[in-house]
Design a protein around this nucleic acid. Structure first.
Lengths: 325, 325
DNA sequence: CGCTTCAATGACATCGCTAACATTGATGGG
DNA sequence: CCCATCAATGTTAGCGATGTCATTGAAGCG
């Protein structure tokens, strides 16, 4: 069924039906009612593909995320999609993984959909992909971004500063020996670097670090405890790149009877529900993934509506002092 | 840049460029090479919207999921998207929530994209939405489905049987007093009903049940322990609708010094990582969310390729006996 | 009353691609 | 040597909507 069918049924022209659906204020009350009732009666569903081609407005936004299997990204994407859906956009999902392989390929085919905007979690790695994005001439919001790569629009926080702040916080609480258990994705590595620098500023060193490929899991956290205890002096503190790793440590500590924070202090990252629910509750860094997703979405919507918006937005990343440090 | 620009640059007609990209086997080696090099050189990205309109093949699949904030669905969707992406489809995300509000609206606008297939988590609630789906004449795969609602294609398992199997399992292990802590989404309720029936068959009754709105959280699990202990005789067993609830009980039990499974046995659902990582590890029902997502995707791909495929596929749901029962 | 103005509607071309059919020229069999 | 055949490429006409400009008629105004 096409728009012309509805038009015929309502005794108007195709464009009038189009207007009834897209710009009802242009029609007289009577016509509008007649057309809408025909639409309703016939169960007409407009072909958005055709509409997009004609109007050059696809009303689609592409979201490129490493994975949604990780709760942090899932939460962000959920919020992002909710807001955009409200604003009348559809979200096309691109799962890129953590390595840059196929990145350009993925971005290219998705750009072929003529999205009006794009969400990017983390940085674009390949220059080819970067060029493609630039050529697309659409707003790109980057979230969870590294400082290094400047996208068009950015919603996030400085991972390096977070690392440094955690270092300071732990020093202030009196810890003097430090370890890191971290995934080796670019954002985690930036936090680690900041952490290390923060320690250096205080004249302290990192005693041990353990890197592993993303995504991080509880099990990896559990497995990390034993080597950590070996390498780190008693009363040390460990900074984990994810609450999952931290919670894993906590669980294993429970099993082994290691007192937390007495024998080992733990700071996580992400403020996931699991951290809040553990006993003792996890000290962690809270970044509001939901807010970040919402902000990113609103950025795009505003920008597409022609409003001027700030190119950089910060969401706060704050250390939540709880029971494990 | 349009396809004709590339065609001009390569000294061929538009359709030849189209074929170079979509049906290279139809072209001579020389022409193919010439065209592809022009495509490459000019950085041409085909407009898939136009292509979709013309060919009536959108190469898009719509996925409608209650939420991706829940790890189970996120995992399934991840697998689903991965497979489809491999097969050259893009996934458009629809987040429907758990209530049926706006369901028809959401489905309708998404159908306007002319997707070639659709993934549905759970059942369609409104009849309006069901009619719309039927009229769209595209394959619809339903996963995590209730038995009641027969979609076009179905990949899943019987929630009721799972509930019954858990009842039997717990009875067989000698428990005689039973409780349930559950979300009240339709699928969880079906499991609950099966559980109750299973108990009845054995001449046993449910001593207490506590329902709460989805999504389930660890915190709700923790909060559920105290009333549960009040209402349920010692040495009872509780069936939770999610590993998150179960893990919450487990954490709270640790805090209160309630011995698991000595004083309280716990069975979860979902086989999430957290259940495996807890100590004692959680007895649970494992349904492979990844496999379900992959299967659903393959169903669609096969069907769209014109192959005959079974209308119902089962993925196994098996009880994993671990430390909490 | 004639002219402007504006609200309401329509006609037509167009968005960028591909399906369907047409054409071309080389190949090979009788 | 002619003609059927087939591989390789081209021509034309849409796909289903909307942008743009044109048209209509009623209202307002001096």
């Amino acid at each position: 069924m096409r728009i012309t069918d509805v038009a015929a049924a309502a005794g108007v022209s195709a464009i009038t039906v189009s207007r009834a659906l897209n710009a009802p204020e242009l029609l007289s009350k009577a016509t509008l009612r007649r057309v809408l009732s025909a639409v309703e009666r016939m169960g007409y569903v407009p072909n958005l593909t055709a509409g997009a081609l004609s109007s050059r407005r696809s009303r689609m936004i592409v979201a490129i995320v490493p994975t949604i299997a990780s709760p942090m990204y899932a939460e962000t994407l959920q919020a992002f999609t909710d807001v955009l859906s409200q604003a009348g956009y559809h979200v096309v999902l691109g799962l890129g993984g953590f390595d840059g392989r196929d990145e350009e390929q993925l971005i290219t085919t998705l750009l072929g959909r003529q999205p009006e905007g794009l969400l990017l979690v983390g940085a674009v790695q390949s220059t080819g992909a970067r060029r493609r994005l630039a050529e697309a001439m659409i707003p790109v919001v980057q979230i969870w971004g590294d400082a290094s790569t400047a996208a068009d629009l950015q919603v996030g926080f400085s991972h390096a500063s977070v690392g440094e702040a955690v270092a300071n916080h732990l020093c202030d609480r009196g810890y003097r020996a430090f370890g890191v258990v971290s995934s080796d994705d670019p954002r985690a590595l930036e936090r680690l670097e900041g952490f290390r620098r923060g320690l250096q500023r205080r004249g302290l060193l990192l005693a041990t670090q353990r890197l592993m490929p993303p995504p991080s899991t509880l099990m990896e956290g559990r497995a990390a405890l034993e080597p950590l205890l070996r390498d780190l002096p008693r009363h040390g503190a460990v900074f984990c790149s994810s609450d999952l790793l931290a919670a894993g440590l906590l669980i294993e500590a429970g099993v082994r009877g290691v007192r937390i924070p007495g024998e080992l202090a733990i700071c996580g990252f992400g403020d996931l529900e699991i951290g809040r629910a553990m006993e003792p509750a996890l000290t962690t860094v809270s970044v509001d993934g939901t807010e970040m997703g919402q902000l990113a979405a609103r950025c795009l919507v505003d920008r597409l509506a022609g409003n001027r918006i700030p190119r950089r937005l910060s969401v706060p990343a704050e250390i939540i002092q709880r029971g494990t440090t």
